[in-house]
Computed example of a mutant assay.
Amino acid sequence: MDLPVMPPISPMLAKSVPSIPDVGHFEPKWDGFRTIVFKDGDEIILGSRNERPMTRYFPELVEALQKNLPDKCVIDGEIVLIAGNRLDFEGLQQRIHPADSRVRMLAGSTPSSFIGFDILALGDENLMDKPFSERRAALEQALAKAEAPVYVTPAVTELDQAQEWFVQLEGAGLDGILSKPLGGTYQPNKRVMFKTKHERTADCVVAGFRWHKTGKVVGSMLLGLYNDAGQLQHVGVVASFPMAKRESLVAELEPYQTEFSEHPWGQWADQGDAAATGSRMPGAQSRWSAGKDFSFVPLRPELVIEVAYDYMEGDRFRHTTQFRRWRPDRTPESCTYSQLEEPADYDLGEILRLP
Rank of each mutant, 00 (worst) to 15 (best):
D310H: 09
I351G: 01
G349V: 11
T321W: 12
C204S: 08
M6E: 15
L81T: 08
S240K: 13
E252I: 05
D31M: 10
D88E: 03
G77H: 00
V37S: 01
E252Y: 03
R330F: 11
E51M: 05
V23N: 05
T336Y: 08
F114C: 03
L139C: 08
F296A: 06
H198A: 15
D40L: 05
P154Q: 06
D345T: 11
S286C: 00
E350T: 07
T185N: 06
L46Q: 02
G272R: 13
Q163S: 06
L61H: 00
Q322E: 14
E63T: 10
D315S: 04
H319I: 06
Y186C: 11
P111N: 08
E259D: 14
H97W: 03
R280N: 14
L223I: 08
Q161P: 02
G77T: 08
D100P: 01
T55L: 04
E302L: 10
T258W: 14
R318G: 03
D310W: 00
I115Y: 14
G349P: 01
L253N: 01
V206F: 05
M12T: 10
E63V: 08
R316E: 10
S261A: 14
S112C: 12
D22P: 03
E78P: 08
L299A: 04
K29Q: 00
L169K: 01
A284N: 05
G236C: 03
G314R: 07
Y186W: 04
N85F: 03
K292E: 10
Q233P: 00
P8M: 07
I75A: 02
P301V: 02
G266F: 14
L106E: 12
E164R: 15
S19N: 07
F89C: 04
D273S: 09
F294C: 00
Y311R: 14
S19Q: 11
L223C: 00
G32H: 09
D129C: 09
D345F: 11
A121V: 11
F166E: 07
Y311E: 07
T153A: 15
L65H: 02
A202M: 10
Q339Y: 05
G183S: 15
F132M: 08
D42G: 04
W326H: 10
T320E: 11
P332Q: 01
